[in-house]
Amino acid sequence: MATGITETDVWTAADALLLEGARPTIERVRQKIGRGSPNTVSPYLETWFRSLGARIKDPGAFAAPAATPDPVAQAAAHFWEVALAEARAQQEQAHRGRWEELAREGEQLASDAEQLQQREAQLANREQDLQETLRVATSQLAAAEDRLQAAEQQLRQRDELLKRNQLQLEDARSATQAALAESEKIRAQHAQALEATETRHSAHERRWLNELDSERGAVKRLQARLDEAQAASQQQAAQARKALEQEQDQRRLAEQETQAGRAEIQAQQLQQQADQAAANAALAAAREREESLASRLAAAELRAAESLAQLKGKDEQLGELTRHLMSLARNETAAGQASAADPQR
């Protein structure tokens, strides 16, 4: 940078270049000093050239210090003589070409300044675009975070729904177990009732058979008595026939009671079958409800896993986009700083 460059610095650098056998130019003086802009170095170098003639007339103007070794002093004297010869030969040419060189350098500097301004404007535009892109990415990231929070809320709600479904499934299983136990209890009761009915029917049937055998024996006895008494009296025969009819009526009544018992047993069997069918239907309905709840639970878990995977994918994409934008911003900032630090670029 040109800040801090003085005329003494430019004259010292020009003297050193002249002692080295090189013609002092703006670029060489800048390289010798290590800093400075052409606009700052140029007027100081012009005054150096204007005073060079008067300084040449002074033999001690470029004399080396007294402590300088002889070989160095001789080399300096040699370079001084060469520089003087070249300066005398090129003084007029330097004056003529100097203004042309300064004009070209001024044009070059103006072009460089215009290019620098254009690049600074481009960098400013790029920085504005990057800031806008970063702002959009930040808003997208915030929206993604909101969506993620909403998805997490949905997941929590689904977890609660799953818990409720699991509780309902447990309740259904408990109800099914209770229904099965009740069905087994009813089946046992029906079996006991059927066994008791069959026992009672067997007892009745044995009693009725015994009574029938007794009646048959009585009929046989009456028939024998009838045969024995037939010759004795028609009235006794009629009474005997009437008694036989009464016995037959009692036998028919006994048979009717037997048929009524069988019908009661059949009705109890039909009732038991109906109760068994109802218990089976209740068991099938409970199992169907359990399967439905299990399928709904599996579907809800699958949807929750898919939603979580999609959210993770979106988070990775947004993170990659953010890292890419930040990398572009760092590269552009570094390029802008490098261009600002080197005006010749």
Rank of each mutant, 00 (worst) to 15 (best):
residue 163 K to L: 15
residue 120 E to R: 15
residue 122 Q to C: 01
residue 137 A to C: 13
residue 124 A to S: 03
residue 136 V to M: 14
residue 125 N to C: 09
residue 174 S to Q: 13
residue 182 E to T: 14
residue 144 A to F: 06
residue 145 E to K: 08
residue 170 E to L: 04
residue 145 E to M: 08
residue 123 L to R: 13
residue 120 E to N: 03
residue 124 A to Q: 05
residue 124 A to P: 02
residue 165 N to H: 10
residue 137 A to D: 07
residue 146 D to I: 08
residue 161 L to W: 10
residue 180 L to Y: 04
residue 163 K to T: 12
residue 135 R to H: 15
residue 172 A to I: 04
residue 162 L to V: 13
residue 160 E to M: 05
residue 124 A to W: 01
residue 141 L to I: 07
residue 165 N to W: 12
residue 136 V to I: 14
residue 151 A to G: 13
residue 142 A to Q: 14
residue 126 R to E: 14
residue 124 A to E: 09
residue 131 Q to W: 10
residue 163 K to C: 12
residue 128 Q to P: 01
residue 166 Q to K: 08
residue 164 R to I: 01
residue 128 Q to I: 05
residue 162 L to A: 09
residue 175 A to T: 03
residue 160 E to D: 14
residue 131 Q to Y: 04
residue 123 L to V: 02
residue 158 R to W: 07
residue 139 S to D: 13
residue 178 A to Q: 11
residue 123 L to K: 05
residue 154 Q to T: 11
residue 144 A to D: 10
residue 161 L to P: 06
residue 174 S to G: 11
residue 140 Q to N: 15
residue 144 A to V: 02
residue 162 L to R: 12
residue 176 T to R: 15
residue 143 A to M: 01
residue 119 R to L: 10
residue 144 A to K: 06
residue 180 L to R: 15
residue 119 R to E: 07
residue 140 Q to H: 08
residue 121 A to N: 04
residue 159 D to R: 09
residue 179 A to I: 00
residue 180 L to A: 11
residue 156 R to A: 14
residue 143 A to R: 10
residue 169 L to P: 00
residue 148 L to K: 09
residue 140 Q to A: 15
residue 172 A to E: 04
residue 156 R to D: 10
residue 176 T to K: 09
residue 173 R to E: 15
residue 154 Q to E: 12
residue 141 L to A: 15
residue 157 Q to F: 06
residue 170 E to D: 07
residue 150 A to Y: 01
residue 129 D to L: 14
residue 181 A to W: 01
residue 127 E to C: 08
residue 163 K to F: 11
residue 122 Q to T: 15
residue 157 Q to W: 10
residue 159 D to K: 04
residue 148 L to H: 13
residue 175 A to W: 00
residue 142 A to H: 15
residue 164 R to P: 01
residue 144 A to R: 03
residue 153 Q to T: 07
residue 149 Q to G: 05
residue 125 N to K: 14
residue 136 V to L: 14
residue 147 R to W: 04
residue 135 R to N: 12
residue 131 Q to S: 12
residue 145 E to S: 06
residue 121 A to S: 03
residue 130 L to C: 00
residue 138 T to S: 14
residue 128 Q to C: 03
